[in-house]
Structures are given as C-alpha cells and as structure tokens.
Design a binder for these strands. Structure first.
Length: 700
DNA sequence: GAGTTTGAAACT
DNA sequence: CAGTTTCAAACTC
C-alpha cells in the first residue's frame, strides 16, 4: 500500500524524519502528547498509522452498510457488541483476530483487491467496500509497525529499531492521550475485525479461496468466532442439548443471510480437516450448522429463530451423522433484499418422492400440517390425514426429541433437495428449478456454467427482474389454492385436493396429464378449464370436470377409474374444516413461498417460524404417518394448496417458512398425504377451507 | 447411463 | 398472439 508519504518524502530516513517533525501536523500531534520530542518516532509511527485512516474508519458511520442490509447495519452492532464483549474477553479471541490479520496480511489482499472478496467485485464488494476498507485497515494496524515505518522512508529495519527503542521508553511513561486513543482504536479495530470476518463469510467464494487469497484462514477465524457463539447457546440443565439461540446470536444469524453454502462447506471442510474422524466436529460444526439452519429460516428478518432442539443430539454419534446431513442444508437461498418481496424461497418443495419411496417418516411426520396463504390471500390450512387427530393432540407429542429430530431432518431435506442439471441455461432461466424456486444452486446440482450462485448475485437479481418484467407472475406460485369463487368458476366437479389449481393450466397433448410432464399432475392438482390439455385424464381432476376425487367415489364411475392405480387418489374431505380454523393460524405465516417477487410482501409482517413452531400443531403418531406413507407416494393429492408441484419432484419438505414473502415461484405446501388409507372412514374427503387471514394478494 | 419424449419457457 | 426453438425434467430402455 503506497502512501502519500512515500512519494512525498525524501529517500533518506533522517531527512524524512526531520521533515516530518517539522511538519505542522506533527507539531500539532506532538503538542497533544506529553511525550517528549525525543520519542517522536513513536508518535510518528502512530501518526502514520492513523494518518491512513479516514475519520470514518475510526468512527464508522451507519452508512457503511447502507448499500445492503439495513438490517445488518442495525443488528450488526448488536452482534458486534455482544460478540465482542464475549469474544474479546475470551482467550481465543486474540487468536481469532490475529489469525484473521495474519491471513489478510499474508495474502496481501485487502479491499484494494476486490476480486478476492467477490468475483464480480460489484454486487457484494460494493455493498461493503467501505466497511471492508475500514476494517482491513484496522486489521493492519496491530502489526503495522513495519508498515507504518515504511511510509516515510521505506526503511523497515531502521523503523523497527527505532520503534523498539522508543517503545521501551514509552512503556515506562504515562500513556499519552494519543496512545490511549490508539489503544481504543485497537480495540475498535478488533471489533471491526470480528465484523469484517463475519461479513467475509458471506462473500468468500471457492474460486477465490483457491486463488490463494487466504480465505481459508479467514474462514477458520470465522469458524472460531462461530464457535464462540456457541457459548451463547444455552443448554438445559439436564444436559439435554436443548439449545436455543439467544437473541444476539439470532440477530447475527439473520444478519448474514448470505452465508453461502460454499462458504459453509469450506468452513466445514477446513474444520473437518483438523478434526476429521471425530464426530466431535465440535461445537463449531454444531454452531455453524445451527446457525446455518437459522440462516435459512431467518431469511425472514426480524424474527427470532429458534433452532430446533432436535438439532442437538444426545449422542455424539448421532451428531456426526447429523452433521453430514446438515451439510446438505447449507444452501444459500436467494435473498432479494433489494427487491421487496424477494426472499428465501423454500416453497419449492423438493421432490418428495423422487428417490425416496416411501417417504421417510421424518418427512411424513413433518407433513402434519401447515397453513399456506395462497395467492389470493387466503390461507390454506394444510392438513394431513392426521389432522383431526392432531388437533386434539398434545404438545407433548411433538416436543419429543424424536419429533424434533424428524422436523429438523425435514428442514435439511427441504433446503437441500432442490437441484438441477441445467447445461445451457446457466441456471438463470426458469428452466432451472433452483432458479425458478428462488434458490441458489448448490453442490448437489449438476449444472454447468452455473450462474445461479451467491457470487453472481447481481446477475441473478437482474435476470430475475428481467424475467419478471416479462411476466410479473413468473415467480409466483404456479399452483394456487382457489378461492371459493374461483372454485365455483372451475366447477364443483373439478375440485382437486384443497381445490388447488394450476394457475395457467397445462398444455399437455400426449401425456394425458397422467405424467409428471404435466404440471398440474405434478403439482397434484386437477386440470381446470384454463388448461389446454388434450385427452386429459388427470387423476386429480380432469378439466372436463370428471374428477376422481369425487367424494367417496361418486365420480369414479363416471370417470375412468384410475383409482385403483397408483395415481388414484382418495381425496380426503376434512369433515371438520372448521377445526382447521381453530388451529393456530398465524396471520403471517405458513408455508409461504419464501421467495416471492410479488409486491405483496409489504402486507406481510416479517416473521419467521421455526420448524417447531410451524409444526406446533399437534403431531400425530408415527404409526399414522406410516399408514399414510404408501398413500402418500402415489397421491400427493392431499396436498392442499398451492403448490405442490415440486413436492412431487423432490423429497424435501420445507419447514422453514417465510411469511413475508408471498408466493414465489414454487410455493410449497406440505403435502398432505391423506391418510385416508387405512380405513374407510378415512376416505372421507378433506375439504380444506381457506382462511381469509390475509388480504388478498390478487386485486379483485 | 444414454437416449427419447414431453411440455414449459423462451424466442421470433 | 401464434408458431418455433430451446431447454431440462421425466421417462424409457
């Protein structure tokens, strides 16, 4: 780093020093310090150090973060203060910051080399360039004697010697105000380091790391910090790992929504390198994972994230396996902060069936119920076959560790399920499931030349905007739960589970709407008049009105009886639709598509529900879940609402709900496998009524 | 796993 | 808006 001094100052150390001492600035500083002239070099060093810092560096202004994440800027301080007070006091603290400094120093890359931070140097780099500069400068300070000396004369050795000499003298003296301020500055810089490291977590990209930017070290530092965070996690006195993240941690977590999967993986990898073999993977692993999951769930701001207690395992062995599973959830979701309404989109339910037949228990158990606000603003209460029972269930049922664990697994799956194999679209078109779902591609994806990654955030956002400009509904849920009025329009006979319908309808010509080529079928909904399909035989409901779902077989005879085949579905009519109304129907929640490009976001409070919260409806016995499994496989019809399309495709069920974002492309509604299976009585139709908790998304 | 089919998305 | 092309998932072998 060249400094002005370098060019302005004469080459000889002596002359430069003397000139410095003669300078007005030096005199001024000197006048402020009781240090005698003889120790001016010390002062000089200090001066040089600080001289390179802009006032804003010392006194960061809020605008530092103004580019992005106002949330962050607000909460950051919280975290900073919290973390710093805890971290800085810990014995590890110095290591973390020192290593961070070291890493930065070794790489020699600061923000003057934005490339190391963000490949595009724009989207992310821009947002926090200022901050990074400040913090980077701060990082340099601690070990900057050499650096400082370099400015005037580039004679490092001379400066070192001088510094040593003067420092020895100064140590004995009363610290000057200037020194005190310097100490304060150092402290502040540590704070910055911490924050900067945290921010860097978000921006590190694998390629950059590979480029030797030393990010591994930084990540490692971050890991340390995250580990420290675990201290914030409280454990039950009984030793059970019932942890909860305190508000501070939560804030922090929510402040780094862009914690990328890659980063997380790197972090994890780096860590596992050291501790591999031991499932101990420690707290860092847990911490990171927990936080990551929190991040996922906290893509919705302003709500505390309660990590599911299931995350904590009783035994380490389980922890290990869990960690490996958790790896899969470390997926960064698109957070379109700049575009109101965008957000984490977990709506796109992953393929539930694919590769998982029958769905595992965890999934099934998690599909208990949920509510989904549909586009039209109605809230669809998702119910499972067990819904009725669950309603009368007890909290105890779902609070068991096992239940929690299942829920967590579900979250993992939901977050990691989506994947694509795009080869030409660069994952920036709706062809890409991940992109369409508002998710970044992750490791499991087999895409080529993928641009749908956090490092290309800007491009992703732009592309998204472009697509939306063409079709504002492009990212809106394709399948919506119809309102009663709409249902009327569609006709009684044509109601599919939950009266859901594909918004645009399908256009099938050869598949007879009996294969997943058909979006309606894939979504588990019947075809509607809006479909232009030919020879529709959609087992969920034909567009001509023939509907197998015909309660209790009424329409079965009239229609082709596919009921017997795997695609036949018993639509369970919920006799007690009213019961659903009694369920805790959060006005702001449910399985909303987490990424929604709509403009309705504003109408929804930012709120997050933890998976446990989401599933706070009494859960049903696993036995029932089992009963439903087989059924579920073949019919996802019970999936009430809006979108289920991807439910069929992926085996993930999102438990993470983001309410404030209205439906994004693929909204996920937990598949409600109806458990009508086991008994005749269960074949009753489940009629899911919408609950007008929300203002209508769609203007009349 | 490779090739084919299919229909949505994108383009003209 | 319709026709065509592109694309990736679904499907088949």
């Amino acid at each position: 780093m060249d400094t002005p001094h370098k060019t302005q100052i004469t080459p000889t150390p002596t002359s430069s020093l003397s000139k410095f001492e003669d300078s007005p600035v030096f005199k001024y500083i000197d006048s402020l310090s009781p240090i005698e002239q003889a120790k001016s070099s010390q002062t000089d060093n200090a001066f040089n150090s600080l001289a390179f810092l802009s006032p804003s560096s010392l006194f960061p202004s809020p605008q530092i973060n103004c580019h992005r994440e106002s949330r962050f800027s607000v909460k950051r301080h919280h975290f900073s203060a919290d973390l710093n007070t805890r971290v800085l006091q810990s014995s590890n603290e110095s290591n973390a910051s020192q290593e961070a400094s070291k890493a930065a120093g070794q790489s020699g890359l600061y923000d003057e080399h934005p490339g190391c931070l963000s490949n595009d140097g724009s989207s992310k780099g821009i947002s926090s360039d200022l901050f990074d500069k400040q913090s980077d400068l701060a990082v340099e300070l601690p070990g900057t004697s050499k650096y400082d000396c370099r400015s005037p004369d580039d004679n490092l050795e001379a400066c070192d010697a001088l510094l040593k000499k003067t420092s020895l003298e100064v140590v004995e003296q009363e610290r000057s105000p200037f020194q005190r301020s310097r100490d304060e500055w150092k402290e502040r810089q540590r704070s910055f380091e911490n924050e900067r490291d945290l921010r860097k977590i978000r921006r590190i990209k694998p390629s950059e790391e590979a480029a030797g930017c030393g990010w591994v070290a930084v990540v490692s530092d971050v890991a340390d910090m995250l580990t420290v965070n675990t201290s914030i996690i409280h454990e039950n006195s009984d030793g059970q790992d019932q942890r909860t993240v305190d508000s501070g941690t939560t804030s922090f977590i929510s402040n780094i929504p862009e914690f990328s999967l890659d980063n997380a993986n790197n972090l994890e990898n780096a860590e596992s390198g050291d501790h591999q073999g031991s499932c101990k993977q420690n707290e860092l692993g847990d911490s990171v994972t927990d936080q990551t999951s929190c991040i996922l769930s906290t893509c919705l701001p302003d709500k505390p994230v309660v990590t599911d207690s299931s995350l904590k395992k009783d035994d380490k062995g389980e922890k290990c396996s869990q960690l490996s599973r958790q790896r899969s959830i470390r997926r960064r979701c698109l957070v379109f902060e700049k575009s109101p309404g965008f957000g984490l989109h977990l709506n796109s339910l992953p393929n539930i069936l694919k590769g998982q037949n029958p769905p595992n228990k965890s999934i099934l158990s998690s599909m208990k119920m949920g509510e989904v606000p549909s586009d039209n603003g109605t809230v669809v209460i998702e119910s499972s076959c067990e819904a009725p029972a669950s309603i009368g269930g007890t909290d105890a049922d779902h609070n068991t560790p096992e239940k929690k664990r299942q829920k967590f697994e579900l979250v993992e799956e939901s977050a990691s399920c989506k994947r694509c194999n795009c080869k030409r679209s660069k994952c920036l078109k709706l062809y890409c499931d991940c992109f369409a779902a508002g998710l970044y591609c992750i490791e499991p994806c087999s895409c080529l030349d993928c641009f749908n990654k956090p490092i290309h955030e800007k491009m992703v956002l732009e592309t998204r905007k472009q697509i939306e400009s063409r079709n504002p509904q492009a990212f809106a849920p394709k399948v919506i739960r119809s309102t009663d009025s709409v249902l009327d329009t569609w006709g009684e006979n044509n109601k599919t589970p939950a009266s859901a319908r594909h918004k645009r309808g399908c256009n099938c010509r050869k598949s007879s709407c009996l294969k997943k080529y058909c979006e309606c079928f894939q979504a588990g909904v019947g075809c509607s008049p809006s479909c232009r399909c030919e020879g529709c035989k959609n087992s969920f409901g034909r567009k001509d009105g023939c509907d197998e779902s015909g309660s209790d077989g009424e329409g079965l005879e009239a229609c082709e009886k596919n009921a017997s085949d795997k695609n036949s579905h018993d639509i369970v009519t919920h006799k007690n639709a009213e019961e659903h109304r009694d369920l805790p129907v959060p006005s702001n929640i449910s399985r909303l598509p987490l990424a929604y490009s709509g403009k309705f976001t504003g109408s929804f409070p930012h709120s997050i529900r933890s998976s446990s919260q989401l599933c706070n409806t009494p859960e049903h016995g696993s036995s029932e879940s089992s009963l439903c499994q087989s059924k579920f496989n073949s019919n996802l019809q019970a999936i009430p609402e809006d979108e289920t399309p991807k439910v069929l495709k992926h085996k993930c069920l999102p438990l993470i709900l983001k309410t404030n974002s209205p439906p994004n492309s693929k909204r996920v509604s937990p598949p409600h496998h109806e458990c009508s299976s086991s008994t005749a009585q269960r074949s009753r139709k489940l009629i899911l009524k919408s609950i007008p908790s929300f203002p209508s998304f769609c203007p009349p």
